[in-house]
Design a protein around this nucleic acid. Structure first.
Length: 295
DNA sequence: CGCCAGGTAGGTA
DNA sequence: TACCTACATGGC
């Protein structure tokens, strides 16, 4: 990857492999980024870690606008997972499935090809936690609206070259909002879950940062002590917020994704799918969303 | 209008 | 352990 500075707050990346802005921000891993109109290429904009990112992809090159070099180094390079070798990861995923299944599996090959370009963003665990609590029994357009409302109401306003934006609310601010304040935003039965998560984090009962360094299983178990956090939400938080790329809940995996692609009775030993099973799950999820049922 | 949504908690057999 | 249903709301 080559990096070129275009101006004080604009830089360009060249020679990126496995990078598709469209797939990365549309595959259901994050909810605060939206396409914006632009003269050239595909442009997407959003806020993460309290800062704005505007990214344009054109002819295999990626341009970041409104981004200072120091923020690229300390923030966006990691957020976009630019240090990961995704071709190698895809190869390992396919190898893991082949090894566990005992044959050259066409399903994971198709899903990996379909998902090529997806990178797992390194999101803030707190934002991932609240986002995926909101995601339960909900659809993506409404999830995005609820999160936007949460940010506009309880987040912190800041100025950018494109206008005012809002950071994601802190645990403290949601605690002060109370269940009623959260419910007023139409979050429904999730309001008490969001409040419980805020309480857990603000009180120190759960230290999200420390869960980065535990095993994935420990992180899942700890997260599931929060009300409204079950195996599905916990695995998403673990993967998208804590960097546990192997994390996924076996029962959800079977129920939601694999059974639609692998005709029963399948012989997959889910526990042996390797250190990138969570990423494989995301490929399969994206593949599911873009294709009609296989069986 | 009815079905469904990146589920989970709480209840029952 | 294995099912069953309520849950708030709105996208489609």
């Amino acid at each position: 990857m080559r990096l070129e500075k275009l101006s004080d707050d604009s830089l360009e990346l060249d020679g990126l492999t496995d990078f598709s802005a469209e797939k990365i921000f549309d595959c259901g891993q994050c909810f605060r980024f939206d396409p914006v109109e632009s003269a050239d290429g595909f442009t997407i904009e959003g806020v993460a870690r309290g800062k704005l990112l505007r990214l344009t992809e054109l002819d295999g090159r990626v341009r970041l606008d409104g981004v200072k070099r120091e923020d690229f180094d300390s923030l966006w390079s990691g957020f976009l997972a630019l240090d990961c070798d995704y071709p190698a990861i895809r190869g390992e995923i396919i190898g893991d499935f082949d090894r566990v299944l005992g044959y050259e599996d066409p399903v994971i090959r198709k899903a990996s090809e379909c998902g090529r370009g997806i990178r797992i963003l390194r999101q803030e665990p707190w934002e991932a936690l609240i986002s995926f609590i909101i995601s339960q029994n909900n659809n993506i357009p409404r999830i995005k609206k609820l999160i936007a409302a949460l940010c506009e109401t309880y987040g912190e306003k800041f100025e950018t070259k494109y206008g005012e934006r809002h950071s994601f609310p802190t645990p403290k601010s949601l605690l002060e909002a109370g269940v009623d304040g959260i419910f007023a935003l139409k979050t429904g039965f999730r309001a008490k879950y969001i409040y419980d998560a805020a309480e857990a984090v603000e009180s120190g009962r759960i230290d999200l940062e420390s869960l980065r360094r535990t095993s994935a299983q420990e992180a899942l178990d700890k997260l599931m002590t929060i009300k409204g956090v079950g195996p599905k939400v916990a695995s998403c938080v673990s993967l998208f917020g804590l960097g546990h790329t192997e994390a996924f809940p076996v029962d959800v995996w079977i129920r939601r994704v694999l059974e639609t692609r692998y005709p029963a009775p399948h012989t997959l030993d889910y526990a042996k799918l390797g250190r990138y099973a969570g990423i494989a799950q995301q490929y399969l999820f994206y593949y599911e969303r873009s294709k009609p049922p296989a069986f």
